Amino acid sequence: MTEAPFEIIGENRPSPWVLTCDHASNRVPPEINGGDLGLPQSDMERHIAYDVGAAGVTRHLADLLDATAVLSNFSRLVIDPNRGEDDPTLLMKLYDGSVIPANRHADEAERERRLNAYHRPYHAALEKVFTARQHSAILSVHSFTNRLAGRPERPWHIGVLHSPGDGRLALPLIARLMQEPDLCVGDNEPYSGHLKGDAMDRHGLQHGRAHVLIELRNDLIRTPEQQRAWAERLAPILQDTLEAAGLARPEAAAKRPVEIGA
């Protein structure tokens, strides 16, 4: 039986938080080139294939926050669920110095096949969860590599990514994290926090849902012990953020934000 392209954890949990993990897995489904993109295993274990450690952090946070979580079940190299359907990086053929052999000759028909099999069902599952829980605050969990090929090291331990359109969760989260003396916190670092058509734009901004995306440096969350430790550290900070944002009451998270920086 074909595996679902997503996993939902704790669908009926009561927390206002709903967690998402767009790049949870490096799995290549068997119907894609026999389950092999033609890359060495060392590349499939890198950030180019998935967000290293993000799924473990997401699972622990979901338990600690008593929250629902939705995780992808396919590699971002199969098709990237955190990209809009018209994004040129939706189906990558070259990523951080590695050519992806099984994607080199992927045409429009193959792109459409992968959209129908993986990308669209994942987003349909997200929308179903959000629609059923109108009063929710979205936390998207990602990780980033400490160094891209040929680039300097990235110093941030955690980045908080956001758009100017809705800072209800991002701004108080940044302020709260800045109180931690041992953390190097990135405000829209290591890259800009908003890409039109990405998952947070699609499910957060376009619907007026409170949302925030965090990026953890992946060398800090490689082991199960590190993933649990970061989740245990972040859970009370996230609860503080929900309170500071005035979103701890479920109905507050559903209100459309005032435009920030408009």
Rank of each mutant, 00 (worst) to 15 (best):
G197E: 10
I9W: 08
H123N: 07
E85G: 02
A124F: 02
E127V: 01
I100T: 06
R83N: 04
L19I: 02
E180L: 03
A62S: 15
E31Y: 12
I48S: 01
M92Q: 09
E225D: 10
P155Y: 07
D86S: 08
N103Y: 04
P30S: 12
S143T: 15
Y122W: 12
E180M: 05
L177F: 11
R114K: 08
E3A: 15
K93A: 07
A252I: 00
A49Y: 01
L94P: 01
E112K: 10
P88A: 02
A252R: 14
A248V: 06
M200F: 09
R114Y: 01
K255S: 09
S42N: 05
A132T: 00
G186M: 05
A125L: 08
K196D: 11
H123K: 11
L173A: 09
P29K: 07
E112G: 03
H119W: 15
A262D: 13
N188S: 05
I100F: 00
L216W: 01
L195S: 15
F74T: 03
D63I: 00
I79L: 08
D66P: 05
E215H: 05
A253I: 00
N103K: 05
L64N: 11
T145C: 07
F74E: 03
V129R: 13
V78I: 05
R76F: 00
V160Y: 11
Y191H: 14
G204V: 04
R133S: 13
S42F: 01
A235R: 15
N146E: 13
H194P: 05
D36N: 14
Q179K: 15
R27Y: 09
D166S: 08
L195H: 11
A106T: 08
L91R: 08
A254N: 13
P155A: 11
I260T: 02
H157N: 15
R176N: 14
Y95N: 09
W230Q: 09
P190R: 04
D51E: 04
A106Y: 06
L234D: 03
M200D: 07
S140P: 06
G53V: 01
L195Y: 13
E7Q: 12
K128N: 14
D166Q: 12
P250Q: 09
M44S: 04
V212D: 10
D51S: 07
G246Q: 03
R147G: 07
S98W: 00
R114S: 08
R76A: 04
L177W: 07
S163K: 06
H119L: 12
D240H: 15
E45T: 04
H119M: 08
